[in-house]
Computed example of a mutant assay.
Amino acid sequence: MRAVWDCPGGFITQCALKLTALTWLRSSELRFGTWNEISWEDGLWVVPAGRMKRKRKHIVPLATQSLATLKLLRSFTGHKGDLMFPAQGRTGPVMSENTMEAAMKSLG
């Protein structure tokens, strides 16, 4: 976990790795997340059924660290639209799964 917190990759990639560890969401569930799925008051992330493997809505309780990470992330990506992890290049609408995989490989 210390390695993830000190990840040399970009800030958005670091947030994705932290949130994966804190929420146990799969890469696609996380990367395609939208800001309207977060209930800030209740401290919940409601992942719609369409993004879940079993096609059922999934409610993720958010720890204080998760909410803090999301607030920082929103200051970086919130102005770009509803996606939490928009693509930084021309790879598509959201961060590539390869981005997270490469960051994990760099951590060993």
Results as ranks from 00 to 15, higher is better:
Thr20Trp: 04
Met100Lys: 09
Ser66Asn: 15
Lys71Tyr: 10
Ser27Gln: 13
Thr69Gln: 07
Thr20Asp: 05
Ala21Ser: 03
Phe11Leu: 10
Ser75His: 15
Asp6Trp: 10
Phe32Ile: 05
Pro61Gly: 00
Glu29Thr: 11
Trp5Pro: 00
Thr20Glu: 04
Glu29Asn: 06
Gly10Trp: 01
Ala49Ser: 00
Ser39Trp: 02
Ser27Thr: 15
Gly92Lys: 11
Phe85Asp: 10
Thr13Glu: 02
Trp5Gly: 07
Met84Val: 14
Asn36Tyr: 00
Ala102Ser: 09
Met104Tyr: 01
Gly81Asn: 14
Thr77Gly: 07
Trp24Asp: 05
Leu83Phe: 14
His79Asn: 15
Gln14Asp: 00
Lys18Ala: 03
Leu67Asp: 05
Gln65Arg: 14
Lys53Val: 06
Ala87Asn: 09
Glu29Asp: 12
Pro86Asp: 05
Glu101Leu: 14
Arg31Lys: 03
Asn98Phe: 11
Ser27His: 12
Gln14Cys: 07
Ser66Gln: 10
Leu107Asn: 03
Arg74Met: 12
Gly78Tyr: 04
Asp6Val: 00
Thr91Trp: 13
Gly89Val: 13
Glu29Trp: 11
Arg74Phe: 08
Pro48Gly: 01
Phe76Ile: 15
Pro86His: 10
Met104Gly: 01
Ser96Pro: 01
Trp5Cys: 05
Phe76Val: 15
Leu17Asn: 00
Gly9Ser: 13
Asp6Lys: 12
Gly92Glu: 06
Gln65Asn: 12
Thr99Val: 06
Glu101Asn: 10
Met1Thr: 13
Lys71Leu: 14
Lys53Gln: 05
Asn36Leu: 03
Thr13Tyr: 01
Met104Ala: 09
Asp42Asn: 08
Met104Ser: 07
His58Val: 05
Gly78Phe: 02
Arg74Glu: 15
Leu17Ile: 06
Gly89Met: 09
Gln88Pro: 00
Asp6Arg: 13
Asn36Trp: 01
Lys55Arg: 12
Ser28Gly: 15
Leu70Ile: 09
Leu70Thr: 09
Gly50Trp: 09
Gly50Val: 07
Phe11Gly: 10
Gly43Phe: 03
Gly33Tyr: 00
Lys18Cys: 02
Ile59Leu: 03
Thr64Cys: 12
Met100Pro: 01
Leu19Gln: 08
Arg90Asn: 15
Met1Asp: 09
Met104Val: 10
Pro86Gly: 14
Asn98Lys: 07
